[in-house]
Simulated assay, not measured.
Amino acid sequence: MNALRELSRLLLPVACPCGLPDVPWCAACAAVLAGPPVRVEDAAPRLDRLDGVAPLPVWAQARYAGPVRDVVVHWKDRGRADLDGLLGRAIRRTAAASAAALPGGRLLVVPVPSSGAARRSRGREPVRVLAREVAAGLRSAGADARPVALLHRPGRARDQVGLGTRARGRNLAAAVRVTRRGRGLLDPASRAVRGGVPGRPGAPGRASGAPVQCLLVDDVLTTGATLAAAERVLEQAGAAVLGAIVLAATPPPGRASREGRTR
């Protein structure tokens, strides 16, 4: 096995996103994803609903800067699916730690969908990996959670990378949609016909007309435009969106500039 491992390294060299050779990730990069999660919604201006309602609670594992940014970029856009384990464990810890702040009851863990172009380029939707790990982390803390892909992005909406705050909002305003399956799962009348909660026909513990509870999952929180669009369409479909969990959040502009001067 050692000989095969060495041969594979020669044929397909592996390196940590920081550049350290011969390891998929190094101890230093793993360490920046090992801290406690933090609430980050106040740094996302597009999550402010401007109607007196508090913004959607968002938990993040780390700041989207330095080694964390390098790891996430390699994972999403450079084919590094081998980083699923590192990032999956990180967001699972975030989910387990945040479970106590969520109300009881069944919970659907909803990944934010990628654009069609991004999905074709990457060959998969990495956020779905995160949603599975979030559901597992919540279950480890005693919650009744399961991942369900309720959203999609039809049409030719651009990927969000490189867009500013206003452009992100315009790009997503009509781009995020509830899937046909999602409409059936979330519609109170449809659930009443089936007699219970999605996936649990006749299950006790929740009135069939009560809103289905959802928790959003994404990789990076920037302006909050993506989560705001997802929250809006899920609520319009009859769901109760309780919050969101992300891998990382961009630092506020003031903090980012200060960190840049100190490095």
Score class of each variant (00 low, 15 high):
V32S: 03
G52Y: 02
V220T: 02
V109C: 01
L186G: 01
A95Q: 06
L185T: 00
L185D: 01
L150E: 05
P103G: 13
L215G: 14
P103C: 10
A149C: 12
V220H: 00
A43P: 00
K76S: 06
A44N: 01
V40Q: 01
R183H: 03
L151A: 02
A203S: 13
L7Q: 08
Q160A: 11
G85N: 11
A65S: 06
A15F: 07
L186C: 02
P111R: 09
S115H: 08
R46Q: 04
A157D: 09
A149I: 11
E41G: 00
L234T: 13
L83Y: 07
R78H: 08
R122W: 06
A90H: 04
R170F: 08
V178G: 02
C16W: 08
R122I: 13
R191Q: 05
A248I: 10
V197P: 03
S121D: 11
N2K: 15
T250Q: 07
S115L: 12
G205K: 04
R9H: 09
S115N: 10
C214Y: 07
L86M: 15
D219C: 05
V58N: 03
T226N: 11
S114I: 15
G224P: 02
G195E: 06
T226K: 08
P67I: 05
V197T: 08
L227D: 00
C29W: 09
A240T: 11
L107S: 06
A249D: 10
A81W: 13
V220D: 00
A65V: 12
